[in-house]
Write a protein that binds this DNA or RNA. Structure first.
Lengths: 247, 247
DNA sequence: CCAGGTCTTACGGAACCCGAACGGATGCGC
DNA sequence: GCGCATCCGTTCGGGTTCCGTAAGACCTGG
């Protein structure tokens, strides 16, 4: 996901990288490209699938931001053809609400996802994250370990004390993000933006999914010790033993 | 509608940031600007789109509050032109608070949105929230250490001599601010402005919260030794012996 | 001794979090 | 194609926590 695992690569190392932006909506394209440029990227644009394929050949971008909905050939089809010739990382843009897009994309092997409408800032963050990841090369996505938890992002398998946890898609994403940023509090809004990829939405969605996740990972879901609530702020995955103080 | 989303960056870190306020209604502009100034921002105003674009070039603001309804060129158009030249975060104001407007604004790429009529406090909160978001996202903030106190803003965990303190949101924010500025006296007004983000308000709010905080951090709350009162002036966090904030 | 500032306590209400349940959408087996 | 199970997002009621304010007692300095 968008999370940045501790890496030696700073954002300044990403300056000058080439990003190909594929979207038929001129407004979206303009906004996104302006943000990406401001972040130091060299941006090339394409408005449809064929132009995208050409540009990918000619421009040799380091990363491609690809809208799912395109005139002419579908974004997913463009993605498949791209994969046929190169392994450039791809971030897919999808319309909000079509959940199958997300799943189809994950199966197809997109590197990240962002739901429209998205905050342009969020896009920049994701681009940087994916690029960092792709540069690291050796650890495509390292396995996360935290206490008795073990989470393999590429295999999408999570275990606690060896026993596999039957997590749903969202639950997995949520746990993955939290494990990547342990001992850090995130508000519901932040989680909705980063894990869900939504610029806005019902915050209770996060609440409920946290509850469901607790049901599966906590010994006693009623009084959680790891995925704790920070009142008025958000949630936190605590690693250091137990961290509840009463007073 | 609930804003907020407390983060790891204190409001005091936002003091001095430049905000460009674009609204043709002098009353609205005056009220909003006074609140923003009281919150520590440097405010520049513009009454129409062209002035806004000029001011954005000249003033290089850190954030822009932009009314959607403007004489001359429309706010959305101003927004697009702004995006063409820089990526300064923008908060949009609109007269009719329908959900569609909000979505339209966010889709265009605004970072946040506020419906008129809005409470000036709400505006200040949003400005702070967006600025925080644009400054940092996942980078944990450095831990504050002072005597036997230890405070981790990212995890929102405070300990004294290793024992965790059960602080509420306000108490934590208050202690965080004081630890960041040790041995310095702050009036109630200042605390209300910086910690609470209020321009005006009942000063006894501060008094009571100081008392509650003392109850939790002082050995003998009746005769405080760290969070001391400076009569007629305000409060101060006194560092006992050696005091150093690790940055 | 007075006046203004500070402390303490108490209380009502607001904000917040949780649990449970519902309906819709999707994928799967038949 | 048709039920069935799963997952997801939303909604609602209830209980809890926290916050801001008010009011009175106490303290400080003149």
């Amino acid at each position: 996901m968008s999370a940045a695992a501790p890496s030696t690569i700073g954002n300044e190392d990403l300056v000058g990288r080439r990003v190909l932006l594929v979207d038929d909506d001129p407004t979206v394209a303009e906004v996104a490209s302006s943000y990406l440029r401001a972040a130091g990227f060299v941006v090339q644009e394409a408005a449809d699938g064929f132009a995208a394929l050409d540009a990918a050949d000619a421009g040799r971008p380091d990363l491609i931001v690809l809208d799912r909905m395109l005139p002419g050939i579908d974004g997913l089809e463009v993605f498949r053809r791209l994969r046929g010739r190169c392994s450039t990382p791809v971030i897919m843009l999808t319309a909000l609400g079509s959940e199958d897009d997300r799943i189809a994309g994950l199966e197809a092997g997109a590197d990240d996802y962002l739901a429209k409408p998205f905050s342009p800032r969020e896009l920049v963050l994701r681009v940087q994250s994916v690029l960092r990841r792709s540069i690291d090369e050796f650890t495509p996505e390292s396995v996360l370990e935290c206490g008795e938890f073990r989470l393999d992002p590429s295999a999408r398998v999570a275990t606690r004390a060896g026993a596999e946890l039957a997590l749903t898609l969202r639950e997995f994403d949520l746990l993955e993000f939290l494990l990547k940023h342990p001992d850090q509090v995130f508000s519901r809004e932040e989680l909705l933006r980063t894990v869900w990829g939504w610029a806005y939405g019902d915050l209770s969605t996060v609440t409920v999914h946290v509850r469901r996740l607790r049901e599966k990972i906590e010994r006693n879901p009623r009084s959680p010790t790891m995925l704790t609530t920070v009142w008025g702020v958000g949630y936190r995955f605590t690693t250091t033993g137990r961290a509840d103080a009463v007073g």
